[in-house]
Design a protein around this nucleic acid. Structure first.
Length: 612
RNA sequence: GGUCUCAUAGCUCAACUGGAUAGAGCAGCUGCCUUCUAAGCAGCAGGUUCCAGGUUCGAGUCCUGGUGGGAUCACCA
């Protein structure tokens, strides 16, 4: 219906001025509340071509459209804004079109979208930062599906390397055979404990070394003047680990054994990782997410080396005397970048090159989205540039969905200071907060315990997820645990509540009222029109969320729709409306809102309860 | 220091790609539950959109230059 309106505007412009504009330039938006009308056409863009005053064009156009289009019943012009009032026929027709469309599954576009997200390390449990990542990745996958893509959700687990060896060594030397079962701890937390223990041990070793003769000698010879001892040793940490530390030496030995395929080391590695995955799976379950394909870095870290040969041949890469391989990206305003170490092993970019290639060979995806924090912006710029130079056919279809870090009101999350917010704890907390709030409120008397638990879970998770996903991804956000469990105002539960109210009404309807949309005699309320406008904009919003890779648009849409519905609910009687046909109309409208709310929230990974 | 990025009400966030008088929520203050769920609705108050210029019918949004926060510049991943 909206497209018909646009067509009418086109016709009027063509008829009056013999001028055509393309659809993209035809700017039509919902009218601001202060003005009369429902849709506004901005005439300024026409001024140049037509060479008349904006007001004049507005008047002429308005008159013409009102005369010619049976959708427009009135107009007014303010400055260069032409506000149109639409006919009852428009609203009713739109509503019935929406009703028809609502039940239909999204049309497939035959394209494949791959989303990489989450990608944890196996030495630490999932934390708040991962949650933002996971919610973004999951939502993008859902939004992709809603836009007709076949979607492949994937993650690369960082299951190898020096960091993993740290927890392995720590467990081996101090656990005395303890297991998650014997300690009654979730597997990922169990392993994480040994990683922390390693770091503590290493720190105390390092601290002691700093005051030895050797440590002091190094400080004196290497520090620049003015460098405090503390600052110097902070930056020397990696070097110490690699060159002087005893525990560091043992860790590196373990990595060598791992790489050599030593059976005992591999068995230990596998055991610890299995524990971690068991723990991760529980967290993923609680978050309501899953993956289609899981890659492990222990498998992908060897990939990408064939590119080095090819790149050398094509003179895209060059080799230094020590046989390390580099790429020069300075003409693209980047640096010289290492792609292969002098010992012939791969680095981070090499792996990513290889993984991208492998994925394309396997899935032929039309789009690949990497959900990774913005601290890696530069890495992805480099990665994409290299793939382009190598002539990879998919190089232009890659996107780095870069998101800002999550801060706490007290500042940054730092694992060393123990300020990292653990995902499992957080989930438990929001759910119990939902339970408290609900019990204070009452009203779930008819439900079984299991049903009630399910409601609390849905409400708590909605509060948490909505709080995070409503923020524009590229912005750094502040996570206040107190606010994250809020259930009033712009929150997940507020939106759920609108849905629950509708479901509650629908449960009371025994017989659908008899009414005919084509023959509806009642006047429409402003708020009813507003709801229809919002429902109409759903599709455009979906497309925009996809194009901009921004799930927060969906979140904001849900809030706007729920807010409008709450007002409608307050202002208009639905079940006991004055007229039978009003009852029918409002029920249909409500049902449509419920379906849209539920569908849109599902895109964010948020479930709707039937009661609350 | 180079590069990238962000800055909007006391706090957390919006603003339809350059459009009307910059909007919501929280916190504060007022009202509204014997009528479909008050996790709601209505109202009050709160702003030099970091600063200074520029572009034009029109700038929170674009360009230039500052200021302040963050990230990144490893033969770590």
């Amino acid at each position: 219906m909206l497209t018909t309106l646009k067509k009418d505007i086109h016709t009027a412009i063509a008829g009056l001025y013999d001028h055509r504009i393309d659809d993209g330039q035809l700017l039509i938006s919902p009218t601001k509340k202060e003005f009369e009308g429902e849709y506004t056409f901005v005439v300024f863009p026409l001024v140049k071509a037509i060479k008349k005053k904006p007001e004049e064009i507005g008047q002429e156009l308005g008159e013409r459209i009102q005369a010619e289009s049976n959708l427009v019943t009135g107009y007014n012009v303010v400055k260069g804004f032409l506000n149109l009032s639409l006919s009852k026929r428009y609203w009713l027709q739109t509503l019935s079109e929406l009703t028809v469309k609502c039940g239909q599954a999204p049309i497939q576009n035959g394209k494949t979208l791959m989303v990489e997200f989450c990608s944890p390390n196996t030495n630490k449990p999932i934390h708040l930062g991962h949650i933002r990542n996971i919610l973004l990745g999951w939502s993008m996958a859902q939004i992709g599906e809603a836009n007709g893509y076949k979607v492949v959700k994937t993650q690369v687990v960082n299951d190898r390397g020096i960091a993993v060896c740290k927890s392995m060594l720590s467990w081996k030397e101090s656990a005395d055979g303890a297991t998650p079962e014997s300690q009654g701890i979730k597997g990922d937390h169990f392993v994480g404990k040994y990683y922390v223990a390693f770091e503590q041990l290493f720190q105390s070793e390092y601290k002691a070394w700093q005051s030895t003769e050797k440590g002091q000698a190094i400080y004196k010879s290497l520090s620049k003047d003015g460098d405090l001892e503390e600052t110097f040793f902070k930056s020397y940490k990696n070097k110490y680990f690699n060159e002087h530390s005893k525990i560091g030496k043992r860790t590196k030995d373990m990595l060598l054994q791992w790489e050599a395929g030593d059976p005992e080391t591999l068995a230990l590695w596998k055991q610890l990782n299995d524990w971690v995955y068991e723990g991760f799976d529980k967290t993923f379950d609680a978050l309501g997410i899953d993956f289609d394909v899981v890659n492990y870095e222990s498998e992908t870290y060897i990939l990408g080396k064939e590119f080095v040969q090819q790149g050398l041949q094509d003179k895209i890469f060059y080799q230094k005397e020590d046989s390390s391989v580099w790429v020069d990206l300075e003409d693209a305003k980047m640096d010289q970048k290492l792609v292969l170490r002098s010992d012939g092993t791969a680095v981070y970019v090499t792996q990513d090159l290889g993984t991208a290639h492998m994925r394309y060979a396997k899935y032929k995806m039309d789009k690949l989205v990497y959900v990774v924090a913005d601290e890696q912006d530069y890495h992805f710029k480099v990665l994409f540039e290299i793939l382009k130079r190598l002539g990879e056919p998919y190089a232009d279809n890659l996107y780095h969905l870069s998101y800002g870090m999550v801060d706490l009101p007290t500042g940054k999350m730092k694992s060393r200071e123990g300020t990292v917010v653990d995902a499992d704890e957080l989930i438990e907390e929001v759910i119990s907060e939902a339970r408290n709030a609900s019990q204070e409120r009452g009203g779930l008397e008819g439900l079984t315990d299991a049903e009630r638990t399910d409601v609390f879970r849905k409400i708590g998770m909605a509060a948490l997820k909505y709080f995070i996903i409503k923020v524009n991804p590229k912005k750094r956000m502040t996570f206040d645990p107190k606010e994250s469990v809020d259930m009033q105002g712009q929150t997940g539960p507020y939106i759920q509540n609108a849905y629950v109210r509708i479901r509650s009404i629908l449960r009371r309807v025994s017989e659908r009222p008899d009414y005919d949309l084509n023959n509806y005699k009642q006047e429409l309320q402003e708020i009813e029109k507003e709801l229809i406008v919002l429902l109409t904009s759903y599709e455009a919003m979906l497309g925009e969320a996809m194009n901009k890779y921004d799930p927060s648009l969906v979140a904001n849409y849900c809030y706007a729709l729920a807010k409008a519905y709450h007002r409608f609910y307050h202002d208009c009687r639905i079940l006991n409306a004055e007229q039978e046909e009003t009852r029918g109309f409002r029920l249909a409208l409500s049902e449509l809102v419920a379906e849209r709310l539920s569908a849109a929230m599902k895109l964010l990974g948020i479930e709707m309860p039937e009661y609350m």
